[in-house]
Design a protein around this nucleic acid. Structure first.
Lengths: 196, 196
DNA sequence: CGCCTGGATGTCAGCCGCTGCCATCACTAG
DNA sequence: CTAGTGATGGCAGCGGCTGACATCCAGGCG
């Protein structure tokens, strides 16, 4: 006889994803999720601050992966190069085996605006954290913010493509990042930076 | 004797901002907002899809301003140049007289995560719309998405600075946009685009 | 062996966001 | 004068979420 089945958060996450995928997010009650794994609604909200959050747990690890990438960049690296290093680091967080699961999860998010809001919010938080790390390296405030947000933009676009195509996230990130540099170079030629 | 006081949405928005600024967003109920202008909670939700939305009404006009800027760009303009044109157009949407009101509104948003989520969501929607407009001009899908999101990033950062400093949004946007080009150029020199 | 402590869970009451449904109440077109 | 018409009110009800308190059981300790 055990006090309670261990791993309550994980069981809740798994059950939630399955129920959301079949019935839909709004048509699924927190009490239903909890009940399906032998718990109560109250316990659900003890593990997750709100109903949406059950789909966004584990992001802390992704943040760490990004920060590891930042830390791994040589001190001489320019802001966007540091961000590129963080992107390479983050790519390892999504090996191809993870694609099926990510696709299912994303299909749930794509069908619900409230979940899309939360997803963007998480990306924004990530950008803010990376920007802080850049500032801690001595990068100027504006440059840090811009580089971090641009990096997260590249990450977001790359992730979306990684779900559709069968290429590795690292390859896609490289391509998207390169395209950003190309677009900027193209604009620079016509609209040269005034006073540098 | 009139049927009802006209301008219900505007009165609700004004009252909501005042109440949120004094009591805080979560400490203010929809019924209180409605009651303060002689309406009921039910009517509040007829005008605004949810409680947060009362702070984000009128964004449709900003979207149009962006699209006007896109349309005004010459057909030969590169994607990021089109976006720069949209940014100049959008700057006119926030004349300096508007700064005090924007500051009050932003202070409310900054104090509440749920409102920050909604704000980012609106920016994302804006980026998606601009990307669609770019694609309609014949811009490649990846380039359109990247350029649009980068433009919205520049807009977001510029807007934040516009609230703090006393310079015009147009000036700030130019500076931030230029800094983005500079950062990209700096990265390009060390990390040249592979196959172009 | 029995007491005690602590963390995870259960129970319950209650607020508030939000919605569907129907009634009301001017005002307006005919 | 009558039949709409559009904004509003009233009301019931669900679900998200929270605070307060009780319960339960493994492990430590005497």
């Amino acid at each position: 006889m055990v006090r309670w089945q261990p791993g309550a958060p994980e069981r809740l996450q798994k059950a939630a994803l399955e129920l959301f995928a079949t019935r839909g997010f709004e048509q699924t009650t927190a009490a239903e999720i909890a009940g399906s794994v032998g718990l109560t609604e109250r316990t659900f909200f003890r593990h997750f601050s709100d109903k949406r959050e059950v789909l966004f747990h584990g992001q802390q690890q992704l943040v760490r992966t990004f920060l590891d990438g930042v830390a791994a960049a040589p001190p001489s690296a320019a802001p966007l190069e540091v961000v590129a290093a963080a992107l390479r680091s983050a790519s390892a967080f999504f090996p191809d085996e993870r694609r099926p699961h990510s696709r299912l999860r994303q299909s749930v998010i794509d069908r619900n605006p409230a979940l899309q809001e939360r997803e963007r919010h998480k990306l924004t938080t990530l950008a803010t954290t990376v920007a802080d790390a850049l500032r801690a390296r001595g990068v100027d405030d504006l440059a840090a913010t811009l580089a971090a947000e641009s990096g997260i933009t590249v990450f977001g676009i790359s992730f979306t493509r990684w779900l559709r195509e069968e290429r590795s996230l690292a390859d896609i990130s490289d391509e998207v990042f390169g395209e950003l540099l190309r677009l900027a170079g193209e604009a620079s030629r016509e609209h040269p930076p005034a006073r540098a």
